[in-house]
Design a protein around this nucleic acid. Sequence first.
DNA 1: TTGTATGCGTTATCAA
DNA 2: TTGATAACGCATACAA
Lengths: 341, 341
Amino acid sequence: MRQARAATNKVRIEEVARLAGVSPITVSRALNTPDKVNEKTRAAVFAAVEQTGYIPNRLAGSLASNRNRTIGVIIPTITNSIFADKVQGLSDTLTPAGYQILLGQSGYSIDREADLVAAFLAQSPSGLVVTGSAHSQRTQTMLKRSGVAVVETWTRNETPLDMQVGFSNEDAAFEMVRHLHSAGYRRIALVVASYADNDRAQGRLRGYRRAVNDLGIADAAIELQAEFSFSEGARALNELMAKRRKIDAIFFANDILAVGAILECQRRGIRVPQDVGIAGFDDLEIATVSVPSLTTVSIPRYDIGVTTAQLLLRRLDGETNLPGVDLGFRIVPRESTRRVG
Amino acid sequence: MRQARAATNKVRIEEVARLAGVSPITVSRALNTPDKVNEKTRAAVFAAVEQTGYIPNRLAGSLASNRNRTIGVIIPTITNSIFADKVQGLSDTLTPAGYQILLGQSGYSIDREADLVAAFLAQSPSGLVVTGSAHSQRTQTMLKRSGVAVVETWTRNETPLDMQVGFSNEDAAFEMVRHLHSAGYRRIALVVASYADNDRAQGRLRGYRRAVNDLGIADAAIELQAEFSFSEGARALNELMAKRRKIDAIFFANDILAVGAILECQRRGIRVPQDVGIAGFDDLEIATVSVPSLTTVSIPRYDIGVTTAQLLLRRLDGETNLPGVDLGFRIVPRESTRRVG
DNA sequence: TTGTATGCGTTATCAA
DNA sequence: TTGATAACGCATACAA
């Protein structure tokens, strides 16, 4: 006879069952579907669980049942608080429902996204949450083959992989430029993140271009790229202010850049909004407390997480044909852009 | 004969093995320990993997091998960027090593922490990363029984559960108060997070109290609690400025509160650092770009994550007797407090 | 409502 | 270096 494999020292379902005087499957049922078990039996099982400190082995359970109460979440970087808010929304909704979150950061690379998708699929997750709609072919193939529920967030378009929860980045940028125009600005620059493989940045760029064209102010348009930081906002401001052809407003594609620019204006004695109007994107708390307060685009960061989680839970509950959800955006005029009239 | 259980449509190791003309275990070895397999065999296996798009089922693998390349990470909230930085450090180090991160948020509650520990232990993680050293009895019992590798972060003390990576919150607060004193401030208030079950806040409070006592300025000491936001910083400032017994400096236990106060001073025409000195904690980027820039305590947020991950990897590699790591802190004097001397 | 038999997909063990 | 066999710990299918 072969030697048996070294078993773990952990409590197993069998031990609980022995103690409760029932079979292992009854323990399983008492824990997973309590109403399918007699009240007295249930009590005995719970007592035995308590006494032994039994923690079910989900690896075994998931393997047997072929479903794992885990949701893979892939974001560009947790360091950008807009994604932290989304993760919070996901967590607040999924954790009470008994799901765990596997977190991965793509660093804005669709290749690293693909690696994470592969790693996550290996865990047989119940669902996957990704950011944006720019994915590598490999990612799309894997997702399709796996048949796992997928939600693309922070975006809206006509060709979802599966489900989507977000808003139109293009429309949001378009509306902000229109707002700046109606506030009297005519020479409006855009500062946006690198848009390689970033459909959100691409959308905002499209919205900006469409707006300046529609408004007939395209000749004064300037586009700049910047990383995500306060100091990059200051750098972009300085670069734009040094141009021969003066601009009179800057639309930053996120609030951190915009506030960095406002602070640089303060240091340099440039008046906002008189000398230059400044607008942001995201509506972080700092936009309301900044001096001057920041005109920006409010987006439902936390709600994207909550809605995504709810959609996933409904799908996992068997619902099909779930819709793409457009949670919209809102232009929030504040002190950093000139008043109309 | 009973009906067979519905198998998944996914590619299994057996199919890859057939295609490569070897046995399943050889495929397993080719993937997990490539050097234990003949080069030609390995090539055949890889080709078959490529052709089938095989993704190993880690649930099954982990169950069989009794180890799961997963690290559970429990933080108070991802919304506080200091923890986001730590997670980034963990992720940057663990992902390349083939580990996945299970993320849980305790909301500063040791009971929710215990629930998360139970949920994570059910996944047989390779290790667990928790925040601080305040844990419920239940958590301690579960961790001890499980024998899983644990790192407590953001703290240093004499009674680690297992490993620790952090710094002394008490010493950091103590040194900051000494710095304020040496800059000429004598009536120094403290604004700190709620310290129920929060050993970091408790440590900072102890450091503050020890310092004001040592320096003989305890009679002017005021302690205030505040949540984590810019507006709470403004609120705390206003509350302190309204007191009959004037204070001349405020030590905020995080930069967000401190910057909120600076911005409120700007709105109210209170001069910083002349009318009131303001100090923060964490050294976020905003501390350097704020006007005036913020005197604060720099802590190795990202490095805590990296070091924690490295420690875990070494432990999982068999090393024992790994030390607690004190990564220290640094007082960073800037414009928001008077010059020393 | 409870129990029996069996399988989930992989890896540890031992033998060749 | 490769393979046969037996676990890993639980839940599904079916019967009682």
